[in-house]
Amino acid sequence: MTSWASWTTSGVFTGAGGVRTVEVGPISGDLTVHTTWIDGQAEVAVQFTGALDWFTLPGSPVPCPSQEESRSLHQAVIDAIRLGATETALSAPGRRGSASA
């Protein structure tokens, strides 16, 4: 049986420097953050709020053994984006991501 969950948070305003994405590099402004957890992996993407295109955060997907941990990761990414901490959430201690949030 496949286990999955997802969270979406809109109205996340970026701190200084914005957030780095795989597809287009840094973006900033009013973003929506989406995390999907499927069978031990969390995929994190952002978009400009109200837009259609989603952009992957470097290091995503990351190993995430539980639904609860993936929810915590989602919140950590939101917090990092708001602070402009572009090298934190997905590469935090205990995570195998290599880059930013």
Rank of each mutant, 00 (worst) to 15 (best):
S10G: 04
S10H: 01
G11Q: 07
G11T: 07
G11W: 02
G11E: 07
G11A: 03
V12K: 10
F13D: 12
T14C: 03
T14Q: 04
T14M: 05
G15V: 00
G15D: 01
G15R: 01
G15K: 01
A16I: 09
A16L: 14
A16N: 06
A16S: 14
A16V: 09
G17D: 00
G17E: 00
G17A: 03
G18W: 04
G18E: 06
G18Q: 05
V19S: 00
V19I: 04
V19G: 04
V19R: 04
V19E: 00
R20N: 02
R20E: 01
R20Y: 00
R20M: 02
T21S: 02
T21M: 08
T21W: 09
T21F: 11
T21G: 06
T21L: 09
V22Q: 13
V22F: 09
V22E: 10
V22G: 10
V22H: 11
E23K: 13
E23T: 07
V24T: 10
V24H: 15
V24I: 15
V24G: 05
V24C: 11
G25H: 10
G25P: 12
G25I: 03
P26Q: 08
P26W: 01
P26C: 12
P26F: 08
P26H: 10
P26S: 14
I27C: 08
I27L: 05
I27W: 09
I27N: 03
S28T: 11
S28R: 09
G29P: 12
G29F: 07
G29M: 12
G29V: 13
G29W: 10
G29I: 06
G29C: 12
D30C: 07
D30F: 02
D30S: 08
D30H: 09
L31H: 08
T32F: 04
T32A: 15
T32Y: 11
T32R: 06
V33Q: 00
V33Y: 00
V33T: 03
V33N: 04
H34W: 14
H34M: 10
H34A: 14
H34G: 10
T35P: 13
T35I: 13
T36P: 08
T36M: 11
T36F: 10
T36G: 12
T36D: 14
W37C: 00
W37R: 02
W37M: 02
W37K: 01
W37G: 04
W37P: 02
I38L: 15
I38H: 05
D39I: 01
D39Y: 06
G40M: 10
G40A: 05
G40W: 01
G40H: 03
Q41C: 04
Q41M: 05
A42R: 09
A42F: 14
A42P: 01
E43I: 09
E43N: 11
V44N: 00
V44E: 03
V44S: 05
A45E: 15
A45Y: 09
A45H: 13
A45L: 13
A45C: 14
V46S: 03
Q47I: 01
Q47S: 15
F48D: 07
F48Q: 15
F48R: 15
F48Y: 13
F48K: 15
